[in-house]
C-alpha cells in the first residue's frame, strides 16, 4: 500500500473516520489509483473500468465496507463508477466520501457515480462525506447516487458536505418496490463564493413504500445553494420531504419542491423553511452565557448534526 502523507491521512480521517486500513472490506483510492484493497469473506471488492464492483453476499450481517477517495494532486480530474449489489437479507454499512486538498492553480474534480442494487429485505446504510481543503484554485465534487430497492429493502443515506467544496452538483435518485423504505439525510454547508446544487428524486412504485427525505443546509458569505426535491407516488405509499436552510451574511438558497401523486392512496408531504437564525434562539443561548458568535455556532452545529 502507498503510504499516506499527513494531509492525505487527515482527509481520510475527516471523510471516512479512518487513516489506517480497517478490518473488513475496503478500497482506498488516492489521486485516481486504488492504492489498497481488500475483500472480506462476505463482501467482494473488485475493480472495473473507472471504479469498483462491490458485492455483498445474501444474509451478510453487520459488516462495513470503506471506500474513501482522496485527491491531493492539484488539477486531478476523475470520474469514478462504483456499482453495489447487496444480497437479499443482508445488513451492511458503506462508508464512502471524498476529500480534496488543492494547493495549486488548477481545479480538482471528483465525479462519483454510485449505483446501489439492494436485494429483498436487505438493509444498507450509506455514509458519504465530502470535504475540501487547501488554498488552491477549486475543489469540485459531483456525486450521483442511485438506489434501486427490491421488496422490503431499506436504505439510509447520510449525505454530508462538510465544508470547503467550491462547487457541487449532487444528484440522488431512488426507485422503491413493495414495502421498501428509504431515508435520505442531506447536510450541506457552503461558504465564500461556493455554489451547491442538489437534486433528490424518489419514485415510489411499490405498495407501502416509504420515502423520508430531510435536507438541512447553511449558506454563508456569498454562497448559493439550489435544491430540487421531487417525490413521485405511483401506489399506496408515503413520502415526506423537508428542506430547511439557515442563511447568514449574503448566502442564498433556492428550494423547489415537487410532489407528483399518481395514485389515490399516495400520501406525499413537503415542508420547507429558509431564513436567518431566529433572534429568539440567539437570545436564549446568550441568556445561558454564550456569546453571540458561540450561540450562532451552537445553532448551526446542532442544525447540521
Amino acid at each position: 500500500m502507498k503510504t499516506l502523507d499527513q494531509i492525505e491521512k487527515e482527509l481520510m480521517q475527516t471523510v471516512a473516520g479512518i487513516h489506517e486500513p480497517p478490518a473488513g472490506a475496503y478500497n482506498f483510492r488516492v489521486n485516481g489509483k486504488s492504492v489498497d484493497r481488500q475483500s472480506s469473506k462476505n463482501i467482494n471488492v473488485e475493480p472495473q473500468e473507472n471504479g469498483l464492483i462491490i458485492t455483498v453476499k445474501a444474509d451478510t450481517q453487520d459488516e462495513v465496507v470503506h471506500i474513501p477517495v482522496i485527491i491531493s494532486k492539484t488539477g486531478h480530474k476523475e470520474v469514478v463508477i462504483n456499482d453495489f449489489y447487496i444480497g437479499d437479507n443482508a445488513d451492511v454499512t458503506i462508508v464512502a466520501g471524498c476529500g480534496i486538498y488543492n494547493c495549486g492553480p488548477e481545479n480538482s474534480v471528483h465525479d462519483g457515480i454510485h449505483t446501489f442494487h439492494v436485494g429483498k429485505n436487505a438493509k444498507v446504510r450509506y455514509i458519504e462525506k465530502h470535504y475540501g481543503a487547501g488554498p488552491g484554485a477549486g475543489k469540485t465534487l459531483n456525486p450521483v447516487s442511485k438506489f434501486y430497492l427490491e421488496k422490503g429493502a431499506y436504505a439510509e443515506a447520510e449525505l454530508e458536505q462538510i465544508r470547503g467544496v467550491d462547487s457541487t452538483n449532487r444528484i440522488t435518485e431512488a426507485e422503491l418496490k413493495d414495502g421498501a423504505k428509504i431515508l435520505i439525510r442531506e447536510k450541506m454547508l457552503t461558504q465564500g463564493r461556493q455554489h451547491a446544487k442538489s437534486h433528490i428524486e424518489t419514485i415510489l412504485n411499490g405498495k407501502n413504500s416509504v420515502a423520508d427525505i430531510v435536507s438541512r443546509s447553511v449558506a454563508t458569505d456569498e454562497s448559493r445553494q439550489e435544491f430540487t426535491l421531487h417525490i413521485e407516488g405511483n401506489n399506496l405509499c408515503r413520502g415526506h420531504s423537508e428542506c430547511d436552510a439557515i442563511l447568514q451574511d449574503n448566502g442564498a438558497v433556492l428550494a423547489t419542491p415537487s410532489l407528483d401523486a399518481k395514485h389515490v392512496d399516495a400520501q406525499l408531504i413537503h415542508e420547507a423553511a429558509i431564513g436567518k437564525i431566529a433572534s429568539e434562539q440567539l437570545d436564549k443561548l446568550m441568556s445561558l452565557g454564550l456569546t453571540q458568535i458561540q450561540a450562532e455556532s451552537q445553532i448551526i452545529n446542532g442544525f447540521l448534526k
Binding site: D244, Q281, G302
Partner: peptide
C-alpha cells in the same frame, strides 16, 4: 415562549 432548536 421558549424557542425551538433543531438538532439540539
Amino acid at each position: 415562549q421558549p424557542p425551538h432548536f433543531k438538532g439540539v
